[in-house]
């Protein structure tokens, strides 16, 4: 099992090196984190349209 992990690691290292510096620096900034609402909601009011204001 350990042997396989090591092999994975080597392949990964090679793949990262193939990627190159600029691709790695660009890639690290490409993620998106999305959080769903914590409670059910209908369409939220547009700014300034609050009938309870």
């Amino acid at each position: 099992m350990k042997k396989n992990n090591n092999l994975d690691k080597i392949t990964r290292k090679e793949a990262i090196q193939k990627m190159g510096k600029y691709a790695a620096l660009t890639a690290v900034g490409t993620f998106v984190i999305l959080n769903p609402l914590k409670a059910q909601s209908s369409s939220p009011p547009d700014p300034g349209g609050d009938p309870f204001a």
Binding site: I16, V28, T30, I33
Partner: peptide
């Protein structure tokens, strides 16, 4: 939370976690 990532990011992340 859900995150959307590209294969290159996954590679870096896996290496980081490893």
């Amino acid at each position: 939370s859900y995150s959307i990532i590209e294969p290159e990011f996954k590679l870096l992340l896996e290496s980081y976690l490893e």
